[in-house]
């Protein structure tokens, strides 16, 4: 089981070259297949995930959650997806049509792009970039653009407020997010994901870098616009913020993209701080799924417990607390590495 997916890929390439295709072309076809696989995984995973979040939130809130369609209401998400797909696509007349229509697509494309560098098992990166972590952070921060496009294009004051909030929030939290990952990079000496995973074969970085983990977790929650930092959406204040004017599948794309981001960030967290795909007994790809889902549940728990923080508190928390703390962490890590090197490690 361990190398099931890797072997399948090798077999595919071997078969293609056997048909007389040049190796370059075979790799390209493999890449396309991998992309399609990612998209299928993303969509399947999200149907499960939305159901899971509803169940978990139902459990937290002392209610049942979906329970009508299929066993434990598992088909509820599918029913919802069908409903959203068949809904009338409304584009309000006063919107900036181009921007309004492209925003959800940009958002979902950016979110799916994140999966390229995540090691989904032993040797299961789609592309093992030597700047993998850097790629992840930079692509991840692009989703601001999509939210700003949605906010601006909707031509609605609530949407614009939501879009502006998302820009302010993401720019502020980008910095502690990157800084907290720097500690890990300093220890590993590489931005390549596979190196980071390999460096954790003895000890997970969550043990070596606890402060970085906490700052990363908080900034990631803010980056994902998850509660208690769901400012751009902020249902009770901004009606639905940047998504106010969206209906049907366009709205669903935003929803989908948010969950895609959420899974990607959880998987990265598992990779960077919890040893990635490494684990005993079970196949590596199963381990990363288990770890990702455990982290996802922590996200759920936080979202459904806390009230929403206020915008200015949110900003000052980042600039006055998280950034100094993550900088101090870098200093500490540097000093620690220096001391250990002098001691001859």
């Amino acid at each position: 089981m361990e190398h099931f997916f890797v072997n399948t890929a090798h077999a595919l390439v071997a078969w293609l070259t056997g048909l007389g295709l040049a190796p370059g072309w075979a790799d390209l076809i493999l890449l396309v297949v991998q992309w399609i696989a990612v998209i299928i995984i993303v969509i399947l995973n999200i149907t499960v995930l939305i159901w899971l979040e509803r169940k978990v939130s139902g459990f937290i809130q002392q209610r049942l959650g979906p329970n009508r369609l299929g066993p434990f209401g598992m088909f509820q998400t599918i029913a919802d997806a069908i409903k959203l797909l068949t809904k009338e696509d409304i584009v309000p007349s006063q919107t900036d049509r181009m921007i309004f229509k492209t925003a959800p697509m940009v958002f979902i494309i950016i979110s799916v792009m994140l999966y390229v560098v995540i090691p989904m098992g032993d040797g299961m990166e789609i592309v093992d970039l030597n700047v993998g972590l850097f790629y992840f952070i930079s692509i991840g921060s692009l989703s601001t653009i999509a939210l700003l496009m949605a906010g601006w294009g909707s031509n609605n004051k609530w949407s614009l407020l939501g879009g502006m909030r998302s820009v302010a929030q993401m720019i502020s939290y980008e910095i502690p997010l990157a800084f907290s990952l720097l500690g890990v990079v300093m220890i590993t000496g590489s931005l390549r994901m596979s190196d980071i995973v390999a460096a954790q074969s003895n000890i997970w970085f969550v043990v070596l870098q606890p402060i970085a983990f906490i700052t990363y977790f908080i900034s990631a929650t803010a980056e994902l616009n998850r509660g208690p930092f769901d400012m751009p959406e902020a249902e009770q204040e901004l009606t639905s913020g940047a998504y106010t004017e969206y209906t049907g599948m366009r709205w669903a794309l935003f929803f989908l993209a948010e969950y895609t981001n959420l899974v990607a960030v959880s998987a990265l967290m598992a990779t960077v701080f919890f040893g990635g795909w490494q684990g005993p007994w079970l196949p590596s790809w199963l381990w990363i799924i288990i770890k990702t889902y455990l982290i996802l549940n922590v996200f759920f728990l936080i979202k459904w417990t806390f009230p929403r923080i206020r915008m200015d508190h949110l900003m000052s928390f980042s600039w006055k607390f998280l950034i100094p703390v993550s900088l101090a962490n870098i200093l500490l890590t540097g000093a620690g590495i220096e001391v250990l090197m002098r001691m001859g490690w």
């Binding site: 009770q236 417990t305 806390f306 009230p307 929403r308």
Partner: peptide, 16 residues
Amino acid sequence: LAIDLGATTGFTYCMR
């Protein structure tokens, strides 16, 4: 108040 502040769980507890 809880739900207006974004704490939806407080709301369900109170409704219960």
